[in-house]
């Protein structure tokens, strides 16, 4: 479908990649609502995926008592909702992640505070 308008109606999208310091990556930690919603972080597309695990996630989620207990080899990853196995040594781009990609991770056995997914 298209907008109905009295004149041609076309405007540039507001959030294209060149406007940001780096492409945006959205990340959600399943069963941990202390962080409310998925997070939004700029990460260079050449950065190895390991950077997400070593730097991005600790900064975002480090304050949660579950975070230190994560066993990274057991983590389940999802890309746009589909199961996916990132290669930590390869870049984000090589892992199929572009501007405004969304990934989620589940940490089996860790279901947040008070059994309430917090």
């Amino acid at each position: 479908m298209a907008v109905k308008a009295v004149k041609p109606y076309r405007f540039p999208p507001r959030d294209t990649v060149e406007k940001f310091p780096a492409p945006l990556l959205f990340i959600g930690w399943e069963d941990h609502f202390m962080f409310v919603a998925p997070i939004c972080v700029p990460v260079p597309s050449e950065a190895p995926f390991q950077v997400v695990i070593d730097k991005v996630l600790p900064e975002a989620y480090g304050q949660h008592p579950d975070f230190a207990r994560i066993e990274w080899d057991k983590v389940e990853w999802f890309r746009s909702g589909e199961p996916f196995r990132p290669d930590p040594a390869k870049s984000l781009k090589e892992n199929g992640l572009g501007h405004k990609s969304v990934i989620r991770f589940r940490t089996p056995g860790l279901e947040g505070i008070g059994g309430a997914y917090f």
């Binding site: 907008v3 405007f11 999208p13 507001r14 959030d15 945006l24 939004c40």
Partner: peptide
Amino acid sequence: EPEKYVQSWLPVQ
């Protein structure tokens, strides 16, 4: 109406 919402002024972005 995608042409309308590609213009969204999203505070985070």
